[in-house]
Structures are given as C-alpha cells and as structure tokens.
Design a protein around this nucleic acid. Structure first.
Lengths: 166, 166
DNA sequence: GACCGATGCTAGGACATCCAACTACCTCCG
DNA sequence: CGGAGGTAGTTGGATGTCCTAGCATCGGTC
C-alpha cells in the first residue's frame, strides 16, 4: 500500500501539461491517467477478495462466462471475444483453471480445430462463492456514488463502442 | 484486434446479474467491468503509439515525472509514490530505462539508502517526442466527448481519493 | 553511544497480457 | 477435387505488476 500524497498527481500532471503549452491535450491526458490509476485500484481490491479463494479476476471472468452460457461450455475463441483478450491469454487462463479442476477441455463435436471449455461442478461452486464475496465487498460498495456509477458506465460504454468492443 | 460483438458484454453481464438476484450489485459490477475494459483499450492505444519509440507507458511515466521535477532527478521512493506502483516495479522500470541510456542512477548526497534517478539528455528528448505523439494521437482525441471527459476525471478522482491515491 | 524499529532498494517467484510464429484444420473457389 | 486463404489453438519470448524476503542504512531512544 503506497503512501498518500499531499496532492492529486493527475491534477498536477494536468497543470504541467498546461504550463508546457499542451493545453489542448491536457484533459485527455488527465482522463487516460485517471483511468489507468482507477483500474489499478479497483483491480487490487477485486484481487484481494479473490485471492483467498484461489482464483484471479481473469480466471473468475472465464468461470462466470461459462456459467452464463447455455451448456456451461464455450469455445476458446468465444471466450476471448467476449472478454476482449488475446487468444494466448485464454489459453493461459484455461490451463490454470483446468489444472485446478474448475474447467475441462472437450473436443468440439463437428469442428476439430475448436476446443470447448466446460465448467465443472467445482468450477461453478467456486464461481458462485466468489460472486457472493465480490458482490458484498466490491460491487455492492464500489466507492462511487450511485448517480456517478451510471454516468461512468455510460461514458465508458461510448469509449468502448468507438474502440470496437461491441 | 479481437472481433466485434453484436451486443455490449457489460450490459449482458449486468442483465445476468439482475436475473440471478444480484441486482443490488449489478451497477457496481458494470462499473468495475467497464473500467477494466476501457483501461485495456486505452492502454493498448497508448502502447501502440509508444512502441515505435522503444518505450512503454510505464517507462514513459517515469521519464515525464523526472522531466517535471526541479533537478531532473528523483529518489526511487518518490517515483513509486507518485505513480502509485510497487517499489519493485520502479526498480524494474529504472533498470530498463538505465540500460537504454534514458536515465542514470546516482547516489543520494546525504542518505546512502536512497538512489536518485536522473534524466539524461536522451531521456528528455525521447520523453518530449513521445509526448508529442501521444498528445496528437491519443490525448488530443481520447474518443470521449469533452464534457464527458471532465465528468469522468471527476468521478474517478473521487474513487482515487477514497482509495488513498492522494 | 549502542540498539532496535523504520526506511530504501533489490532479488526471486507468480501471474496476466501481448506479439510473432507455428501446426492443424476447415472452406471455398477455380 | 485440389490448393489457397482463413480460422483455432498453442508455444516461446518480452513486459509489467505484485508479494515475500532480504540486506543496508538511518534515526530516535534509552
């Protein structure tokens, strides 16, 4: 846990940007920097909750995605597309989940290129337990006023849409 | 570049949360998930701009921090506190920056525990060149309306303050 | 003036992410 | 129906982040 600072480093950077004649980009810089730091903070909180359960957020997301799917199973590619991560990240996550007995690789019935990832009973149980913890300890109290949460999600949705997230 | 989806995965997750009786935490979950994805998108854009210059965003932040300091030099600890990262991350970044000749470790005049990191001429030149690229290609056009940028920075500042970022 | 807790930095290990490259397989067109 | 191009997944390498542990140094206290 790093020490607190007597000032907001993002605001300070924004001031420096203006001083250096980069005023046009100062707001964008502040937005990008804020986003990076906020993500780091929130991710740390999430990981702290999940660590005792033996999973990471990346793997938790895979488990929940499978839990929400019709047959509790999805192709690797679909997982990557939904979570918006590189195929190798999916391979990595599934390797570890499979080693922990939380998911199982299965051959696709018609396409031999495809690997299906199926949720095991243990995987579902862990996903639900983890969700309960996250809901009470993080999602239910994200540290942002309710109105702001709605605004935040909306603004970020616009950004994500422009970037091709959906 | 992952493929586009026919729907917003965050909105879909939010719907699933509601269906499963976790409505109280649905907004928070959506906020956290949006934050993660948006950060990933923005970071990828930043890294794409910096890659041709041979630096990463983490190292660029160190260079700019030094550039904004009075003597173009700061102790490792101060860098970690400002950037809100673990001491070992600072060591890692400075190792690579020093190997590239962009910064230089110097002994502290009075405290022999402390290591000062000093910006070299090459480091300053690279930092300014990188800033120019980032300002025009990312910060100047962050993909968010100007009004929303202000709101976003404000909301995230609240979150960061609560987390002890400043 | 010596000791003991606090501070500054680094080494080793675990994870997640990306990129480039490769293999295996599928599909479609000529 | 055979080859070209595209798709699915993995392997190997590079980075960044954190945690735990360790060493060196500083400072306040007795």
């Amino acid at each position: 846990m790093p020490a607190s600072l007597p000032f907001d480093p993002v605001a300070e950077a924004r001031r420096q940007w203006t001083v250096h004649g980069w005023g046009d980009a100062a707001d964008g810089m502040a937005a990008v920097t804020s986003l990076m730091r906020a993500q780091q903070i929130v991710l740390a909180r999430v990981e702290a909750v999940l660590r005792p359960l033996g999973v990471t957020f990346a793997r938790y997301e895979v488990l929940m995605l499978l839990h929400f799917s019709r047959a509790d199973a999805l192709p690797m590619t679909v997982i990557g597309a939904r979570l918006q991560v590189h195929p190798t990240s999916v391979t990595n996550a599934v390797d570890r989940l499979e080693a922990a007995g939380l998911v199982q690789r299965q051959p696709h019935p018609t396409d031999r290129r495809t690997t299906l990832v199926a949720l095991t009973d243990g995987g579902r149980a862990l996903a639900l337990a983890a969700t309960e913890h996250l809901n009470t300890e993080v999602f239910g109290a994200p540290g942002i006023p309710a109105d702001d949460v709605t605004a935040l999600v909306g603004v970020l949705a616009g950004l994500r849409r422009d970037a091709g997230d959906f």
